[in-house]
Nucleic acid binder design. Structure first.
Lengths: 196, 196
DNA sequence: CACCGGCCATACCGGTGGTATGTTTGGCGT
DNA sequence: ACGCCAAACATACCACCGGTATGGCCGGTG
């Protein structure tokens, strides 16, 4: 049976992560102080440093939280029973849509490489969105839907393009229009490389 | 006639920018202190704050310095008298090669959007590398070399893809190989969209 | 019921960005 | 040649923040 203590501990921990996600999203990593994160979680820095080894560790926890949400949605789509090509297209739309989330955009796309260091960020992304993009591309190749291309670098190109495109959408004055344009360009490109 | 005083002032200013570029490249924005930047330029923080309004302003000066170098090389190629298609290809190679510069990569590609804010970074990039990519694409369309696509978003996709690809190259254990692969994928894609 | 250890609060330190103020120095009018 | 003024720095200091050390509280356990 789960102890009362564990409930409390877990509760304050998740409160800290929630608070961190919100503040990091609004003011960025450098712009938010640990005191304020702790204050909004109604604890003090002491509690924070009991659960996390420091500011970076707390950021990574926030990163994981944000990435997990996106991963869950993407994984559900990509594991469906539709044909690979349709799954990929739906996954593409879902990823673009996920990138519109301010938290995902600022924390996972923009600040994570700087805060965590590019190496560590890359390793983490392998387990999340990027890993899904790569395996999807691999599936398409295995299914004979697209030409055989270097999977690793092509995935990087796709990931970079989509991330920056998503930022473009989110900060546009007419997100729907720009989003549709981007989807059009990508789909157009995909059809070009699709085997006929 | 240029006064002696102006020489001194400009000299210390450029010394500060040089020092900033090197340190920001090596340890990142948050990891370098103004005292150390000033120390390496053999001045004190007083001089620094006389020439720049603060840390951000100094970073933007470093950003401009790094971007200008790349812009100069790219502009030279893209204004050549070869056919538009060849110029674009050479420009592509030069851009990838420029991205291998650690200073350009860390300062202009990775940290600038975070430090300057995405909005301001985007406006700045319009005057540098991204502006060139967009106008090159426009030229290709005007020359009838490629299909008419939404220039703005397609340029963003290209820019994002190339930037992240360049990072991939630079941190690879065999940069030449990965670089060749990326060039291959891009050129392959470009040929797909090229009008026949 | 006592006591142990995880959970958290409080107090404090070092370093950093920023500011306020003092000091030097080169140009320039007279 | 002299003196003054403003630009170009240097110095001293403050506020804030990340991190650490220490102490207290309280639920679990024997």
């Amino acid at each position: 049976m789960r102890s009362r203590r564990e409930d409390y501990s877990e509760s304050t921990r998740s409160a800290l992560v929630d608070s961190a996600v919100k503040l990091f999203t609004k003011r960025g990593y450098a712009g938010t102080s640990l005191d304020e994160i702790a204050r909004r979680a109604r604890v003090t820095k002491g509690a924070l440093y009991h659960h996390f080894s420091g500011k970076q560790a707390l950021f990574e926890a926030a990163f994981d939280a944000v990435e997990s949400r996106v991963y869950g949605r993407l994984d559900k789509i990509l594991r469906g029973d539709e044909p690979p090509w349709d799954r990929a297209l739906r996954g593409l739309r879902e990823f673009i849509s996920s990138c519109l989330d301010p938290a995902y955009q600022r924390i996972a796309v923009h600040e994570a490489p700087v805060v965590m260091g590019w190496q560590r960020w890359r390793e983490a992304e392998d387990r999340y969105s990027f890993g899904l993009i790569r395996s999807s591309l691999q599936d398409l190749i295995d299914a004979g839907e697209v030409d055989s291309v270097p999977v690793e670098v092509t995935s990087r190109l796709l990931f970079g393009a989509l991330s920056s495109a998503a930022t473009e959408i989110a900060s546009s004055s007419e997100p729907e229009k720009v989003g549709a344009q981007i989807e059009e360009v990508i789909v157009h490109l995909l059809h070009q490389v699709r085997r006929r």
